[in-house]
Design a protein around this nucleic acid. Structure first.
Lengths: 246, 246
DNA sequence: TGCGACTTCCCATCATACGGGAAGTTTCCG
DNA sequence: CGGAAACTTCCCGTATGATGGGAAGTCGCA
């Protein structure tokens, strides 16, 4: 299969730009091309709208043209769609409801849910935004944050929703330390009495935790005896989704 | 400013792919390149993940690589993110659910939704694809099409979902003519009994209608008395989003 | 003022993108 | 079933156009 050199190189440059705005020489170094070649390719990318130049500076970044392109992508392959099958499988396997959430600022935003067919169900969390320290996917996200970012989060007034909500910064810090070791968070009766949940992180190509998937349901259906199984399931599901993301 | 021919051509092809999956020869025709050249460029795009080939068929479509690229863009600049604020405002203002959709081939694809806090709500349409002639954003898109394209659409068997679904080509043509004048489409009980909707088009930089935003809800909440207000709201919201797109 | 790092532009060179066409495959009709 | 039409894939000779070294210009800094 014949492949056009210049086009391949152009996309390599685009890939490099994902790391954030960069100058011509930085990019040339990064992709190992002579400056003049990189310059010509960047000019071309700019020309077609795939890259843009920061206002006045000599910095390039990915352009809006790419975003427009992306909206034309068959939607069945958006993150939620890609993940949906996986979520469904996990719901069936666990017999519980399964959620997909993304982190945004200081909140966790649930964007998809799949549920098994059992009588007692929780309410639908899709499209709700919740404080990170009260939900399992929020805790795994916090666990990925730098100390500084974490300090900022914990330094604020922390919302409480049940007597079980944990709002003490020191206690939370210790708990997060544990999560860092296990890569998995449990919550129990912290958001609402009677709800238990466990979550594993979703990790973007950049290494950043962008969200989580979680199994949740009535606390009485989450006894210690099923815990290990649940943990294994949610871990391997997250693993598979991460592979798609990578 | 020197520009690399092959790279420019590659992006032209990518642009052409936005119209939906297409075969090698279709694309070659569309972008006016010799088949062998188009073939080589498509192979390259496939190689870098910017295009992919439909399972077995000889159809290419935009690839996940582009989506991944787009996620590298400052999130505040993605279409849905840009539009979200606007949608939310519109939902609050109208007190109804508000949808954002893009057109793709002969279908309308809902990609985002915001809803007001009212008791009776419709199901979530996000991630569904619907025939253009049954939904308001589809009708405004059709209204922007050339006569030839419209003939093609209307020449096919048109799906019907309720007794109110309009499937007669002549009637649809007349209706679309009206929409062309007003720049706004209403539907009532045509997709599902009890759902009303109105929509204004989203117009890309190229002048092409790429999608629409719409207000929708239970028909009983869409009396004539509110119609004018709704029309004004959806129009000005679309206007603002279009300004962002331009 | 001079140095270093950077961007832009030019131009000779030849690697490489190009496109016609052959060969193979599928689709569509009569 | 047969044969034409339309399509995809592959090959290869040609010359176009991508390439990269380097000069010239710019900026910041000491």
């Amino acid at each position: 299969m014949a492949v056009v050199q210049s086009v391949t190189r152009a996309f390599t440059i685009l890939e490099a730009l994902r790391g954030g705005p960069a100058s011509l020489s930085e990019i040339a170094r990064q992709v190992q091309l002579p400056i003049s070649t990189a310059s010509r390719l960047l000019a071309t990318l700019e020309h077609v709208g795939a890259a843009e130049r920061l206002d006045n500076a000599n910095l390039y970044r990915i352009g809006t043209g790419i975003v427009t392109m992306a909206t034309g992508v068959d939607a069945s392959r958006s993150l939620t769609a890609l993940a949906r099958e996986e979520l469904r499988a996990l719901a069936v396997q666990s017999g519980e409801a399964v959620g997909l959430s993304v982190t945004s600022g200081y909140t966790v935003h649930f964007i998809a849910e799949e549920r098994a067919d059992v009588a007692v169900q929780l309410r639908d969390w899709v499209d709700t935004r919740l404080p990170m320290h009260l939900v399992a996917p929020g805790l795994v996200a916090l666990a990925s944050w730098s100390d500084d970012a974490l300090d900022n989060y914990l330094g604020r007034e922390l919302e409480s929703r049940t007597p079980n909500s944990m709002t003490d910064p020191t206690a939370l810090r210790a708990r997060i330390e544990k999560i860092r070791e296990t890569g998995l968070a449990w919550t129990c009766d912290e958001l609402e009495i009677g709800i238990s949940s466990l979550s594993s992180p979703l990790i973007a190509r950049t290494g950043e935790v962008v969200g989580g998937i979680n199994i949740h349901g009535p606390t009485f259906r989450f006894p210690g005896s099923r815990a290990k199984d649940f943990e294994k399931m949610v871990r391997s599901s997250a693993e598979r989704i991460n592979q798609i993301l990578a």
